[in-house]
Amino acid sequence: MATPLTGTQLLAALRAEGLVVHEVRDWRRHHRNTKGGWGPVNGVVVHHTATEGTDASVNLCYDGRPDLPGPLCHGVIDKAGEVHLVGNGRANHAGLGDRNVLQAVIEEEALPRPHLSDTDGNRRFYGFECINLGDGEDPWPTAQLLAVEKAAAALCRAHGWGARSVIGHKEWQREKIDPLGFSMDTLRDRIGTRLSGAPEGPPAPSTDEGAGTGPGDGGPGARGLGNAPGGGDDEAGGPSGADGSGNGRPSPVPPMPRHPPYEPFPGREFFRPGTRSPVIAAMGERLVTEGCDRYRHGPGPDWNEAHRKSYASWQRKLGFHGKDADGIPGRVTWDHLHVPNTSAGAPG
């Protein structure tokens, strides 16, 4: 039994286990805590989505269905073995299950077969949805199964749990069949082996965009900005050589103007609820000018969903798609937007 991890702690635990993690929209504040308790937590439930396609599955788990509001889990694990965080708090994923199963999880004993539906699992368990049709034929790539192992191990490690704290949805509710296609006993064995060693540490940071904090424009698969094959943004279209002349000699660096004409990229972490800045208002004005207006009352200085939707439109305009057009600014699209420097008119 443990206090739930904060969003920052959850993100750090997953990355420390070697996972690539994407932060989806406002996941840190996305929960169902007003509908029931969240915590103390006792374990992790693994599901399959019965869907296909990363974007559609992630959006479904974030938004939910008409009969079941999101989030439908805490993280979605895609076929490539990457985790998409969609919720932080109570999530509609486990439902009512068997109190005897919960007690076995708490005591880390062999699980009984579930028969009762008398205990709120949404309060007690983290949930990971794995993208799979759940028909017994859709394959489970090695990378995806490894990510399931790592994600569950990360939470066990963070709370000091053993591998028996990880269960399948079908082991919690008698009506469920998920996850279908691999053995939960084998998964727990692999988790136990992983927990016997040290975490492997965060994956190497991406050089595509320089943000290194989750999904966003400039990640793998991003196209449409004239980037040279294999090169990141700093390499796009430039001749060889440090000074652009091909001779490899560094060129003199001109002095930086006191107030450059455009706002420098403030980093992805800047764009989250609670941030208030004239930079955000200036960004919004540029988005309106570019025809990427999703505002009802005009852009203001507070980061909000209208800003995110407008920026996602800008990302798509530049040729980004899927998680690379999540509405959170990245360096490549920010530099192309040319947001006026809000300090340019300041004295001295």
Rank of each mutant, 00 (worst) to 15 (best):
D293V: 01
S313C: 14
P179N: 11
V166F: 01
L14S: 03
P239V: 03
G87T: 08
S206Y: 00
Q9M: 06
V148T: 11
K170T: 04
A2K: 13
P340N: 02
Q103C: 08
L318K: 03
G181F: 13
D302F: 10
G274D: 04
G348R: 09
R331Y: 09
S240I: 03
R15I: 01
W38F: 11
D217G: 15
P205H: 09
D67C: 10
E108T: 01
G89K: 11
K309C: 13
L5P: 09
G75F: 02
R316A: 11
E17T: 02
G75E: 07
I167V: 14
N132I: 07
A242H: 11
P340H: 02
P203S: 01
A163I: 07
T3P: 09
Q144P: 09
P220Y: 01
T333K: 09
E52R: 11
D324R: 06
L195I: 07
A80N: 10
R194L: 15
T275Y: 06
S310A: 14
D189V: 01
E209D: 15
G197P: 12
E149L: 09
I167H: 06
P329G: 15
M283C: 14
E209M: 02
E109F: 06
R331P: 02
G70T: 02
L287H: 10
I177H: 14
E171A: 05
E175Y: 11
A2D: 04
R223L: 14
T342S: 06
W334D: 12
L10T: 12
P329E: 13
T275D: 07
R28S: 11
Q173E: 08
T34W: 03
Q173C: 07
T275V: 09
S277C: 12
P255H: 12
L337R: 04
A306Q: 15
A325T: 04
S245G: 15
G37N: 13
F265N: 11
E200T: 12
F270Y: 15
E209V: 09
G136E: 14
D293N: 14
V148G: 04
A163G: 10
G248D: 15
G244K: 05
T119K: 10
N132W: 06
R124G: 04
G53L: 02
P141F: 13
D326G: 05
A13N: 08
W172F: 10
G53H: 01
A56P: 06
G246R: 04
G70Q: 03
G75V: 13
V339S: 00
T275A: 12
A222L: 03
A153F: 05
A151H: 02
R90M: 11
T34G: 07
R223W: 06
A16M: 00
G181W: 13
R296T: 13
D178F: 11
